[in-house]
């Protein structure tokens, strides 16, 4: 099996930033990295991978038909090297000795026959789960999908949340079932198929080097302190933000992807009522992760 790990998170929780850090660790010259050099993304819901593997046009399938096949597609991807396909070009973390990462926003779920949607132990060696304070996720998520904060907060509380699968046009990615924010986190942390390494976005912001060092231990990936420091320096939020301002970011659905990058930016973006809503909806999981509520009565 390939040296494959899921890079899992609820949307807008620091997944892309961690991808950039890992990408820079595998580059000989991270100092020359700019944000549009980021390796072509591997995602769990990539249409092309699914279509190439199954020989079907996923755009003609409904969500149930797609999910019937997804476990087998993920297992095949991990087990078989067909995907050195003609379209697979450029540098990938995972080429050669490096671990390979697949971004995933799906909740960790099982199909009705008990098969893990993501293929379980046959599809990956483990998972890195990045979690972010849901009060920080909400404004970023609202901006990302271009909805108001109320709608974003409602999405984050919806346990049946499906990443908008439209009947009348085709999205870039296969439909994703997120679940609600708490359910998403729980699904990954409580599953027992795969070892999971938990990273808090806030810790990544405050001490990136330490977080990365612990992650590399989990991955059994040998890197020197110099490599780690150079990767961290090349992946500084302000640097990425400046690069995006100058030449854009090809993965950004909106004009700005690297928006604020503040741990507590939500304090001036959410109303008191919105903060209370989020803290009520996700109190248990927030407490478990050490996110302290402003409302002490919750």
């Amino acid at each position: 099996m390939k040296n494959l790990y899921w890079l899992a998170s609820y949307p807008k929780s620091g997944n892309t930033w961690l991808r950039i850090l890992l990408d820079n660790l595998s580059r000989p010259m991270p100092e020359k990295f700019t944000v549009n050099d980021l390796s072509a993304i591997l995602t769990s819901t990539d249409r092309r991978t699914f279509d190439d593997s199954t020989l079907l046009s996923s755009g003609l399938l409904d969500v149930h038909e797609i999910e019937d096949l997804r476990p087998k597609v993920h297992v095949e991807f991990a087990q078989v090297d067909h995907h050195a396909a003609p379209h697979s070009v450029g540098h990938h973390p995972g080429d050669g000795e490096f671990p390979q990462f697949t971004k995933v926003h799906d909740a960790y779920r099982y199909l009705s026959d008990g098969t893990p949607l993501l293929g379980g132990v046959r599809a990956a060696k483990g998972a890195i789960y990045v979690v972010r304070d849901p009060r920080g996720v909400a404004p970023s998520y609202a901006h990302h999908i271009n909805v108001d904060l109320g709608e974003a907060i409602a999405d984050m509380a919806n346990s049946e949340m499906v990443h908008r699968d439209f009947k009348d046009h085709q999205r870039r990615h296969l439909p994703i079932i997120y679940s609600d924010w708490s359910g998403h986190v729980a699904s990954w942390l409580e599953q027992t198929d795969l070892p999971v390494h938990l990273i808090r976005y806030e810790d990544m912001m405050s001490d990136t080097v330490s977080v990365l060092r612990k992650l590399l231990e989990f991955l059994d990936w040998q890197c020197s302190e110099d490599q780690i420091c150079r990767a961290v320096e090349a992946s500084r939020f302000e640097t990425l933000q400046a690069q995006e301002r100058k030449s854009g970011f090809r993965e950004a659905p909106n004009p700005t992807f690297f928006r604020r990058g503040l741990v507590d930016g939500w304090r001036d973006e959410l109303t008191k009522a919105q903060i209370r809503d989020i803290e009520c909806q996700h109190a248990k999981m927030m407490a478990q992760l050490g996110y302290v509520p402003l409302n002490t009565d919750i």
């Binding site: 593997s53 199954t54 020989l55 096949l69 087998k72 597609v73 297992v75 095949e76 067909h82």
Partner: peptide, 8 residues
């Protein structure tokens, strides 16, 4: 069988 995929 000389090749197979997830559904073929």
């Amino acid at each position: 069988c000389i090749h197979r995929g997830p559904n073929w």
